[in-house]
Design a protein around this nucleic acid. Structure first.
Lengths: 250, 250
DNA sequence: CGCCTATTTGATCTGATTCAAACAATGTGG
DNA sequence: CCACATTGTTTGAATCAGATCAAATAGGCG
């Protein structure tokens, strides 16, 4: 029951401000730490978890299968995320959570999270913001899957991953760890593995990225953003973001 | 500032239990009621609303455009919904909200909602549940758009709409108002209007549905559910849902 | 070294788009 | 109440983005 709240604190600080006492409260959360191998299920669709899983190390994803066995990945998760936070309010999981690489997960009892929310309302608000950003990412993915061609979709996803990894300090020099398979990318974008490979090839040939050995390097950030129609605002990374030009009061 | 909270109460009661005092608190919410014509924007991407819009009458939707002008609809909204509730915690809208038909919308100041959440924590929880179900619907749409063929996708959407309209009392005898255009359905499913028409034709010819004059009738509910691979559980309609066969404690 | 998993490449097929046009329904103003 | 305009539906034909199938190559790792 040693606390390892630092990745979580870092994550929350990327979307909100935390006071010293809030950071303390997070560090005081009791958690059971567990290692989980690659490609394992953490929580299965239909289960009713009694704990939330805070991802400390590794990559995870949430997904669901079609009746004919096709998989759609809804989200990729990185250290600091609590992918099944929603189980606190929706008792039954409507999708599964699994690891991509080997992971370290800290399980926090639901009761402890609820107590934290009661004693620290503004922390509760921070977590709600996180849940809402999660949904905003779903929307952006929907826009891509439904309406953007494969190359744009792929470039957009890479932009998102780089941005999110940067926000939690896992980027340096436009290089991020990305130990994800082309098949997994395909399952996230609603595309076949073959087509992912060809789209990746396109981005490589345009000199936008390099990707090998589990690390992605963005060679041309502006170009990749353009290729992916990437506008970071949907990630709501800055609480104090300036008003947009076309913003208006109702 | 006359309150018209009944559709909202009905909606919340479909996903949670409300006490008499909670219902009273909802009725006491001050709201400015406004009629809005069909196909109008209610809140535009980039804006920072100071109110939430409670939909009292009519159909609305949330959407976003691609850079090349393709639209993806993320959600269809029916009376009782507060489609922009998220603006309470995410200051800047990352997508737009607009009407489909003429609508009556009750605008509630953010401050009033926050006060309500403070004085009635379990109401706050009900709204959070609603927001999480919203995200669950996004996931289910993603699964369809990414991994299901057009006919299945369409049948699934129809099942969802009928189920949701039933939950708020807008269904009778497997007939629901559905004043939506084939183009709008297409924008929701990531398909072209032409293909929606052909897929609809297929469902009609299979004797599953009848749809005309703005009303949809499901002729074969079991058949439509099967055609759409529809499993209602993602809508989390019942707080007290029984454990599924494969549910397990961690 | 040999096994297993992931990437790469080529060929073919198909679900869905696009384009184009006819047709139906609905609403509007004179 | 009708002519006209507008919006939505229907139909057909051509085309294409991406899937599927199949097989070769390349990495990792015990």
């Amino acid at each position: 029951m040693i606390s390892q709240a630092e990745p979580l604190i870092r994550k929350l600080e990327s979307i909100t401000d935390l006071s010293a006492s809030e950071r303390e409260a997070l560090r005081a959360l009791p958690m059971r730490i567990q290692g989980i191998g690659p490609k394992q299920v953490i929580v299965r669709e239909g289960e009713r978890p009694s704990h939330c899983g805070l991802l400390l190390e590794g990559f995870a994803c949430r997904y669901k299968f079609t009746e004919v066995g096709k998989r759609q990945i809804f989200a990729f998760h990185t250290p600091g995320d609590i992918p099944d936070l929603l189980s606190l309010y929706l008792r039954t999981m409507d999708h599964s959570l699994g690891t991509i690489t080997a992971c370290t997960v800290a399980f926090i009892p639901h009761g402890e999270m609820r107590a934290l929310f009661r004693t620290h309302p503004s922390l509760a608000e921070a977590f709600w913001r996180d849940l809402l950003i999660d949904a905003a990412i779903f929307r952006e993915w929907m826009l891509g899957i439904g309406r953007r061609p494969a190359r744009v979709r792929l470039a957009h996803l890479l932009c998102e991953l780089v941005t999110r990894l940067r926000a939690v300090g896992l980027e340096s020099d436009f290089t991020v760890p990305l130990p994800i398979t082309q098949t997994e990318i395909g399952d996230g974008l609603g595309l076949s593995t073959v087509h992912i490979h060809r789209s990746l090839e396109y981005l490589r040939q345009k000199g936008l990225i390099r990707w090998s050995g589990g690390y992605l390097t963005v060679l041309d950030w502006a170009g990749l953003q353009e290729a992916g129609e990437f506008d970071v605002s949907y990630l709501h990374l800055d609480t104090k973001e300036p008003a947009r030009a076309h913003a208006r009061q109702r």
